[in-house]
Nucleic acid binder design. Structure first.
Lengths: 192, 192, 192, 192
DNA sequence: TATGAATGAGTATTCATTCAT
DNA sequence: AATGAATGAATACTCATTCAT
């Protein structure tokens, strides 16, 4: 049991280290030696947990994506009104990214980079199914525009990443006010 | 004269090669040897045109950003109604990205990656000034929501990149219909 | 134990290879690839033992300097008469250089070249302390001229290098006779 | 005439630049591009004046050696007493090196480095003939020890370089007093 | 005579991965 | 399971030299 836990910890430490390094300098900054050192492990050990670097990145992507969506769909209840549900998810997403800047930044890189296998990318999309289902429900109720879910995603969730990046450059601070405004823009763009 | 032209051509060929390689495999795929070979030039020649790799990437970024915004603001006339102007710019942007997938993909990587110097990134922002001015005018006229221009950008322009990326994965085809829908979403998100 | 020994051997082989190459064609002949090949090791392996080329050269310098001075001060006994002691040290130095032409030639390069860090050079000087102490004693006894130890060094030890170099060009052979003469010149220059 | 002068000037500028660069960072610092830039000339132009880099270094060596010895034998009169003559030459040499630190440092590098062709090195030796003749005269007169001229050189002239180098490290200042002392050491080492 | 542009071969250094222990 | 040492191939960059003008 203790042994298993130690294994899990090491894997987690490796993923965390990779996240941190990719974040600070892109994928080329995350060389195996640095990842190993940061995780307090020998470089050779990495290969006990992952097939190779690409595999490690892929697994990291899925892990973060899963954590992100789990957080997004926390307390999600399909019986609530669509707007209410959407609002909750949207804010959950925002709060997650705001509180987990590293993870947010990493996801943003992955989504705009040939860093991740196409297959893995597709797998990541699946986590969003509940949101797509919600939109479908909203469309049936005539509340949400009859657009492709990708389009809806592009105008509601994707913009969140832009903010998070903006804050890094200190060009733009997110306050309660801007947060409300952002949600309003998101909702206006897809509501009927 | 012929010499100067040859120089300009070589520089352009190098930038094009870099664009292509970064696009296909991220910054690490664009190694100097490959860039040189693709531009049909010796690796040493690169350093006649650029200080180093980072400088080459930065210059490429600025060049593409400039071409993109020039295309976006073509025939831009501040005397037209705000919505009309915005529509024109938005469609110009979309068409540019749709017709220049390589450039679009590259810009998307740059905007979400520590690939570009912060200073260069800021310089790139300046090209958007006319759009920011237009929004300011729209706000004075009570047509556009009183949000930060970055927020407006996040919900109107930034989502375009998502589409372009989507198409690559063939999950989503852009038709005239979806294009209209996308613009509607963009406009709805920021109009009062 | 075997592992440690192997490590020590490799480091020694690298230093020896560097010595040999620097000697034959200056620092630029000692490129990492050649050093590696001569030490029968991969270029990457060098960096397990040394931080970089400069560090390798510095460490080589200190190692050789230490070996040289250890050989010089072998059986050194401060209780013997000053001249006797000096004679012993001087001959030890000569014999060392004569029997270790590679090392001698290398030290001579280092002492007249911006090849070595200033800090390392200073560190190398410390090894000569016993000789400086001996001279101080001789000065207190009124046997040695009251000159700066650097001056004494310049006229007694430094000239040895000139011979060694001369022999390489075959302009000058060192016999027992010339050896005696050389020591006489050295002693005459500093004795009261 | 003006053209010839311009040519001479360029050659001199190239030699001066090489001297300066070799001096500051060894032969590898003196790359053709830097030499050219420092001499305000195109890299290609260097090859109009010198066959290649080695040839340029060789010619520089001979030029400096010639200037040095010309300065050393200035006002040299074989009819003066041997000691007087030697003193004059020795001080001339010292003053030259003290006043031309760049040249001194360069010669010191050349004399202890495989930087210079063996043939060129031998050619450089010829410039010292008057000094060797003086010593021969002194030996005939029973004033100078019957040693090989190389040995005499090693203990009188060669040590000068050590001082000049010492001063650079600021470990040792040369005053009128030390200068006198140094000459005394030199003379004592070779006088009968 | 003089050059700026061009380059092939080379330089120090790094990296993902493997292997003996 | 875990590792430190080892490495071949690659990486960004440099350099002495050439050539068309």
């Amino acid at each position: 049991m203790a042994k298993l836990q130690k294994s899990i910890d090491k894997r987690a430490a490796l993923l965390k280290a990779t996240l941190c390094l990719v974040n600070s300098g892109g994928i080329q900054e995350a060389c195996m030696a640095k990842v190993a050192k940061m995780a307090d492990v020998s470089p050779a050990t990495i290969y006990l947990y992952f097939e190779n670097k690409q595999d490690m990145i892929n697994q990291l992507y899925l892990a973060v994506k899963e954590e992100f969506t789990q957080s997004a769909f926390e307390q999600f209840d399909l019986n609530q009104p669509v707007k209410k549900s959407f609002e909750q998810i949207w804010f959950n997403m925002f709060v997650y990214k705001q509180s987990n800047l590293e993870e947010a930044s990493f996801l943003s890189q992955c989504d705009n980079t040939p860093m991740i296998d196409e297959a893995t990318r597709q797998a990541g999309l699946k986590y969003l199914q509940p949101l797509f289902d919600l939109w479908a429900k909203g469309q049936r109720e005539g509340i949400i525009k009859e657009f492709s879910p990708f389009l809806l995603y592009a105008f509601t969730v994707y913009p969140i990443a832009f903010f998070i990046n903006m804050q890094k450059s200190e060009l733009c601070k997110v306050t309660d006010q801007t947060l409300k405004e952002a949600f309003q823009a998101a909702w206006d763009s897809i509501k009927v």
